[in-house]
């Protein structure tokens, strides 16, 4: 059941403003995105069309609290087929970014952010790895890249770790 009393009329404009969200209002609900989606093919709980419709209807809480928002694999099968030319995967990504702003960030992403803050890369480079690389004749790589932390501080994204 959809109760429009719960609708937040500003929600869709917030998404339109975000990088990748610009195409939202063009959606006429044809469902090509859902029909093309490889994730939906195997798990019907994920439906990009539904996420976009709920966003247009302003049902912010339903969108942001749904675990299925995060099921998008960002594979762009939908982007290729949208008859309205919406970059659908980027639109879903914009909604994810908004969800993070509002305090809904999956733990896995927080862990990755923490790793990037500490090392500038996702996998720790241990002495064992460096020795293995040397044995194979592969060049040495940096264990940490501190410039990445500087970027994370600059964009303010580290607030995600405090929530």
């Amino acid at each position: 059941m959809i109760d429009l009393k719960e609708s937040d009329p500003q929600f869709k404009w917030e998404i339109v403003k975000k990088e990748g969200g610009e195409g939202l209002l063009k959606c006429f609900g044809c469902s090509d995105c859902a029909a093309s989606c490889p994730v939906r093919y195997f798990n019907e709980n994920y439906n990009p069309r539904k996420i976009i419709r709920l966003t247009l209807l302003g049902l912010k809480d339903r969108v942001l609290t749904s675990p299925f928002l995060w099921f998008c694999a960002h594979c762009h099968a939908c982007t290729e087929r949208c008859p309205q030319g919406i970059r659908v995967a980027e639109l879903i990504n914009a909604i994810k970014n908004y969800a993070v702003d509002q305090g809904y960030c999956p733990e896995g992403y927080k862990m990755q952010l923490d790793l990037l803050l500490k090392m500038g890369r996702l996998y720790e480079v241990e002495d064992f790895d460096l020795k293995k690389r040397q044995r194979l004749g592969l060049p040495a790589i940096d264990k940490t890249i501190p410039d990445v932390a500087r970027i994370l501080e600059y964009t303010g994204i580290l607030k995600v770790l405090q929530k």
Partner: peptide
Amino acid sequence: ASCCGFPMKAVDAET
């Protein structure tokens, strides 16, 4: 060279 940034795209595209 660092991580490409892709793991942070879903969190914040600009970052």
